[in-house]
Design a protein around this nucleic acid. Structure first.
Lengths: 194, 194
DNA sequence: ACCCTCATGTAAGCTGTTACATGATTCA
DNA sequence: TGAATCATGTAACAGCTTACATGAGGGT
């Protein structure tokens, strides 16, 4: 149940319409909580129905026309409540690691190319984040108020750095010849205890 | 569509029943692709229906009794196909980062405690992974066949290390006094361009 | 008139989560 | 017999993904 709170945060930062929110998600909150416009419209509807946000200029509920929302006190309270509440860290869910496990059983055909592709993508994302940091958090400004936003960005940078390093390292240790499924000895789950 | 392939991998490593799979997921594949027993039973049903796996001892489809599955050639082929296929890296989805962004707007009450809690959990998980590494991948064994499994484990270790470091660092830069919502200046999305 | 873009939605399908139901086996 | 555990499911719902639908406004 994080999307409504992501939207409340974005709307508190700046009242917006659905499509504006979608675009802002694409270049900021969406880096760690992506959402499509369909999700966002649905959630805006729910938040409005439950009295946490309201439309500015409510006299024009026309279909093809812009509809801007702002957060009501109830919405701000709910967001504050949620912020203080605890939750377990999200489990990692990364298909690439699954592919490695699968490759250990059925052979590493095509795996190196896939790792290369990921490496390029993560390098790109890392460069983007570094550019944002250079632009929005210059060193000379001791960030008093932007400290939290900077911490979030540093998380993105750290994660991308990790993947770049791990992918490069893993590519290095990959055998030159892809293993063929039939040749491969029966792999055994290393953390299985019989 | 990764869960069926995770199950195929696990079944190729060792034919198992639904509950056995659930337990094996809990201590190995589930670290990067968690699944509950309900998901696993549902997926086993689908894989059996589509002819990718089959039950050993098919003469006993009794409800409360163990039912072991093995992978058929079709299943192995499908897994090999999927392994070679490309996919974009999974987007990060981490509510804690969302909470930081929200805290920048509504105040940092309770945030330090939440960060401490996560720090403890990640330290624990990191210790678990290191223990597995020590046990299953001792340095003296140049791993020829277990190289891929080791790479997966190193990814887990790297990710947990990152979080531990980032959380400690972020806790350090957190102000001693929690900011009150009303005092806080209007935060502005750092990566927004008007 | 036509097309493009902006903008707001609807619908269907799949995945994941939570709670509950049912039968078999074992042990006190 | 009764309780605990092992084992296999069902049902309902929430969230996410993908594809499509509809309308307004502006330009050619």
């Amino acid at each position: 149940m994080s999307l409504p709170h992501a939207i409340l945060t974005a709307l508190l930062e700046k009242p917006s319409s659905g499509l504006e929110l979608t675009r802002r998600f694409d270049r900021s909150i969406g880096f760690f909580w992506p959402a499509t416009h369909q999700q966002i419209y649905r959630e805006l509807g729910r938040l409005e129905a439950s009295g946490q946000i309201r439309a500015l200029r409510p006299e024009a509920p026309v279909r093809g026309q812009k509809k801007e929302y702002e957060v009501l006190p109830e919405g701000r309270a709910e967001l504050a409540r949620w912020t203080a509440e605890g939750a377990a860290p999200r489990a990692v869910r990364e298909p690439l690691l699954l592919r490695l496990r699968a490759a250990a059983v059925v052979g590493t055909d095509g795996l190196a190319a896939e790792l290369e592709r990921h490496l390029a993508l993560h390098r790109e994302q890392l460069a983007d984040y570094r550019e944002i940091e250079r632009r929005d958090f210059p060193v000379e400004r001791a960030d008093e108020e932007n400290r939290l936003q900077h911490a979030v960005l540093r998380a993105g940078i750290g994660l991308e750095s990790f993947w770049v390093q791990w992918l490069a390292e893993t590519l290095d240790t990959l055998p030159a010849e892809p293993s063929r499924p039939s040749d491969a000895p029966r792999a055994c789950d290393p953390s299985d205890r019989p």
